[in-house]
Amino acid sequence: MAITSTESAAAAPRRGMNVLFSLTLIGLLLALWIVLGFATASFWTPLNISNLLRQGAMTAILAVGQTFVIITAGIDLSVGAIVGFSSVILAWLLQAGVPLWIAIAATLLLGVAIGAFHGFGIVRMGLPPFIITLATLTALRGIGLLITNGSTISITNEAFTNFARADFLGIPSLFWMVILIAVPAYVFLHLSRWGRYLFAVGSNSEAARLSGVNVTRTIYTAYILSATCAAFVGVLLASRIGIGNATQAEGWELQAIASSVIGGTSLFGAIGSVHGPLIGAFILATINNGANLLNVNSFWQRIITGVLIIVIVYFDQLRRRSSR
């Protein structure tokens, strides 16, 4: 039909812009890799690439969960604390002789419970997301320290601690975990109606409610997914470092938010994707990795990361303005 074809032709630029932005992000990532390949001898070694994928994996998973929350125009500051806390819980359960699979399931369920508590605080108590998740951030670190009495719990289960070091088909198992999360996350956010509801609630929750969207359930879903992703990362971290420690993953919530924002998520809600935060997380990981290889002072790494966040988000703003 003539009408349909002209419509899709006129619409092409919009979609093109989004693809373009993803491409620029991937382009940036590739450019970083190429530059680092020339600048250092050790960047393109299998060992380093595996390392990079491992480093980026956990932030990537956190960033995906965080993105669900940010799309509803919220924020989840507790994810770093949940990571540390769930590493403690897992180690504690294993120490108590609980079978590994049950311990992991229980840790993940605890993530669900924490997320549900956030949902409760926001929907029923009317607290701003910033406040309720800030409160759990502080409290969870405290509970974790109480359980361990300020020390760490070692994990003796070797099968478990070997997992994070293992490769499968030449790719680190931790990166497979990213794929394990990202594929269903993509289906959920971009293909299912529940994903649309996240966008609708983030854009205008009253309009969504009057259109029959269960706003309460949508908000619960977003925070439960974010907290569960964080608990999952806690399990992965426990496997990687072989201990449970409540002070681990300090500041990871900011890494996750930064990855999400670099990946094009709008902190005002209703704009975001699954692939953006993934690329964002690996851009951050590459910068840290490259800086280490180049022997850049770790203090400088933080400065570079800060500058980069400003530059990328600024370009994203420019893009949005010009497409309007």
Binding site: R196, F199, A200, S203, N204, E206, A207, A208, L210, S211, G212, V213, A270, I271
Partner: peptide
């Protein structure tokens, strides 16, 4: 503006939301 539409989302999504 306040109750009817998700302004920063596409027309199609708004129409199909219910």
């Amino acid at each position: 503006r306040d109750q009817g539409l998700c302004l920063n989302l596409p027309i199609g999504l708004n129409i199909n939301l219910p």
